[in-house]
Amino acid sequence: MTSGFVIFGRLALAAGLICLCIAPFAFTPAVLVLLTQALSMLSLAMLWNLVAGYGNVMVIGQHAFVGIGAYAFYGFAMLAGLHMAVALPAAMAVTLAFGSMVYAMLYRLRTAYLAVGSWVVAETLMLVASRLPGFGGGSGASLPANLLRTFGARVPERLSTIYIMVLAVAVLTFVLIWALMRSRIGLGLAALRDNEEGAAVAGVNTRLVRAACFILAAPMVGLVGVLVTLQEGRISPVASFSMLDWTIYVLFIVVIGGLGSLEGPIIGTLVFFLLRELLQDYGTLYLITLGAISILIVLFAPTGLWGLARRKLGRDLIPLTHDPKTGGAS
């Protein structure tokens, strides 16, 4: 039986998606900029959740792939002069290659080692990026106006084109993860999330399943990196490889929303941007609050806000699990 709250939740999700689709026609440019940021963060949060929440691979170096995506895109589009339609998938391919290499290097490490190891790799790549010839060194480089103009002659048009791309990527990320979770690999991932040893005993190829989610997430994170570059109109080692923006905030979003669920990153992003609007004038206090909330959540409600809500609702808003009673998807 589906309760009224679940129906309400699903309607709210659907209404939210419709709002996002008509946003370019309905909202002011300022709101559109905020939504673009929120959707970029949502994509990153969903991807980090895939790797850490489902795959149990605790990376805190996700910002490396945002930066690689941004720098590879700049290299292909500006230095090699390739067309956008080529530069974008090429940048994703580069992040995919880096993702595979980093994973091949780090996968042997224990959980805690892997976390800090991925951070060392990200730090190294940022330092390398700041020394690359042609990419503007430590201060970075701007995308030229004629490249940005391909997204619209004037600023408002450009904003809505980039917004639509970001929305498309967020939806694509969601659908990809949803489809992955409903596949055989997803079943393995869910088992891995719930109990790693149990999953291994039950015959889940834990190594393969983890590698699959880490390596699949990398090019998508790189794609978000390209879109962030288009929003900002520039690359720089500090901003493109920003740990605060692309890892710390993302981690807080997922932990607060709910690790290891599809709904968690969505709820986390809503809460995060709400808190940001309320507290951003207080500077350091804002980050202290985020840190304290996330510690309290890990201690007292490890499945996050969505985990608390789900206990009341009794089922997921986004159907994922196979219902043993009916045999079909619930």
Binding site: N56, I60, I248, L251, V298
Partner: peptide, 14 residues
């Protein structure tokens, strides 16, 4: 282990 890393991560930011 993941949970403890997340806690120390929050502590670091604080």
């Amino acid at each position: 282990e993941l949970q403890i890393i997340l806690i120390t991560f929050g502590l670091s930011v604080i």
